[in-house]
Amino acid sequence: MTPALEVRNLRKTFGGGRSLTGKPLPAVHAVRDVSLSVRTGETLGIVGESGCGKSTLARMLVGLLKQTEGEIAIEGKNLSDQMGDPAAFGRLIQYVFQDPISSLNPRKTIREILEAPLIHLLGMDESSRKARIAELFEAVNLRREFLSRYPHEFSGGQAQRIGIARALAAAPRILVLDEPVSALDVSVQAQVLNLLADLRQAMDLTYLFISHDLAVVEAVSDSVAVLYFGRVVEVGRAEAIFTTPRHPYTDLLAGSAPIVGRDLGRTESQAVELPDPLRPPPGCAFAARCPKVTALCRDKVPAMEAFSEHHEAACHHPN
């Protein structure tokens, strides 16, 4: 079966090139050699902390950014040449933003916002637009009278439902959810997560769920990819990742999440920082924080290594 989404060696470099006098300009490698594959109807959780490149990756996947290198195929259709042109991607893959309010134009009514993809991507006439919007609002459990209101009149949770409705309007096959609940309160967070789960089932959607919150990712994902400093360091089925993490960074992430009833994790007492993206280290980016670090780690970037059929990690000394 063809996977819903297949990404090969995706790479994004900002800056670089040469100045007018021929001096090379500094370059930041935001995403390096990311390869992923998601099965239809499943959720791939993408976990990482700030600066790991997860938002850059997401923006490439929906076509908002052009890749520096690499290929992307959706349901077997190669779209690598059309990256940077979101209109070409819009009918297949859509994006749900982190901040629900600021992703809605304050001067447009909800109806106008929802109509945009129907007009520009699907070219629907007025009566079919009306029917489609009614259907969408039904799907995200919002009342019809909201359609003539403006975004500032909604709470975060409601605005995020509108954001989801907009993403679904053009009937895409894949949704990229970029921290869709991290701006919401916990009591509302669960409402939105459950809605997403229902929609996935009902519409046979495939999700890429990006988050920094390991517990949320575990609750929604079939498989998980862990990102650190622009690279995938571990990928596998969710159960395997959470029960037997191979990469020390995955271990650290899981150990750091504050959990009721667990003592404070005291894995790192000194303050540590990410490597400088303008001067990346020659070896493993995690080496400076890793408890198992050896000379090899500082010299050579570890390659992805398979542990079982669906579980890979990039580490010289895996658990």
């Binding site: 916990v186 009591s187 509302v188 669960a190 919150d213 390991l214 575990e218 609750a219 009721v260």
Partner: peptide
């Protein structure tokens, strides 16, 4: 009680989460 139930905890596996309806 219900707010605590809303918080997803690591180690619970894949599941539906409980929510508090309304605002």
């Amino acid at each position: 009680k219900r707010l605590i139930a809303c918080v997803p905890e690591l180690g619970g596996g894949r599941r539906a989460l409980s929510a508090i309806p309304g605002l």
